[in-house]
């Protein structure tokens, strides 16, 4: 069994004990595909961008891995990494939010649920924000809102395209209406980006729901998604409670949204860099011209 499951004693970080969620970052040698139940050698999976080579199931990946996949040689300059939530509501539920933040920060090595970086994508300077699904469900509070807004401002300042990779359950409940207002703040910044005619591509990954779908994730010049991602405003359970029936298979998946006209394309993870580079070239010209 040790091949499949991480044994409890060889945890490297004692602080990770509270992150009970299923994780792709297993220390086991093998992993079972959630799509086709195939047992895959972990090294093979890493070589295919964490996509199952049998059934093309896209495993969830963390923000660091995402940026490493997208930037040339995985190299980028990180911005605003020091921003951290101030717990504006002094929110306490089953445990204080401040404590929850500390646990998440220890488990992920991040201050909040998003990494913002600038680097090259097939030679073109781009800004990429990637959400971290493991940090309180990738939820958006004031820090995520501020980091994206600053990234938008950077994109306007240097006319370099912006990509935001969403993976989020929506606005962060523990920051109350402060989180809610981030939706308006980011959307207003995107209005300015729009007026500056700088390309913005929203990449929607599994899962993208709630206030993230209802703001920046749906405001791309291009909205593209990875295959099979859950994308919606309301989550499936909430809809099922509202209509009191089971949802059909594939409802709110990327392919469903494509069919209903809500996405420009569904793009495989392995094709993402080439897709983005091509679209930027079509929209704003070749790299040399854009740099000039």
């Amino acid at each position: 069994m040790a091949w499949f499951k991480r044994s409890t004693e060889d945890k490297q970080k004692p602080t990770a004990e509270d992150s009970s969620e299923r994780t792709v970052r297993t220390e086991g040698l093998w992993i079972k595909c959630d799509g086709c139940r195939e047992i895959i050698w972990k090294k093979d999976l890493e070589a295919t961008f964490n996509v199952c080579s049998k059934c093309s199931y896209h495993f969830r990946i963390d923000a660091r891995t995402r940026l490493a996949y997208l930037f040339d040689d995985g190299v980028y300059e990180e911005h605003d990494k020091e921003l951290a939530s101030s717990d504006p509501l002094k929110f306490v539920d089953s445990k204080p939010y401040a404590e929850r933040l500390e646990l998440m920060q220890a488990a992920t090595g991040l201050r909040d649920a998003l990494i913002s970086g600038t680097g090259l994508l097939l030679g073109r300077k781009v800004h990429i924000c990637a959400m971290e699904p493991k940090f309180i469900g990738g939820s958006m509070g004031a820090v995520v809102g501020e980091k994206i807004t600053r990234a938008v401002e950077r994109a306007i300042a240097d006319q370099a395209p912006l990509i935001v990779v969403s993976a989020s359950g929506g606005a962060r409940m523990q920051e109350g209406a402060v989180s809610l207002m981030q939706m308006a703040k980011i959307s207003a910044a995107l209005m300015r980006l729009d007026e500056a005619r700088v390309p913005y591509v929203s990449v929607l990954t599994d899962p993208t729901t709630g206030g993230v779908t209802a703001s920046f994730a749906m405001l791309g010049d291009l909205n593209i998604a990875e295959p099979g991602a859950l994308i919606g405003f309301a989550g499936p359970r909430v809809i099922e409670q509202t209509i009191r029936q089971k949802l059909p298979e594939g409802f709110q998946r990327s392919e469903f949204l494509l069919k209903h006209g809500m996405l420009d394309a569904v793009v495989q993870r392995g094709e993402m860099r080439a897709y983005l580079a091509n679209m930027f070239e079509l929209l704003v010209g070749p790299v040399e011209a854009a740099a000039a």
Partner: peptide, 20 residues
Amino acid sequence: HGMDAEERGQGEALARNLRE
């Protein structure tokens, strides 16, 4: 929160209003 609202892009409609 209903199927029809999702099919017609509730998220997109909200998002567009915020920006516009």
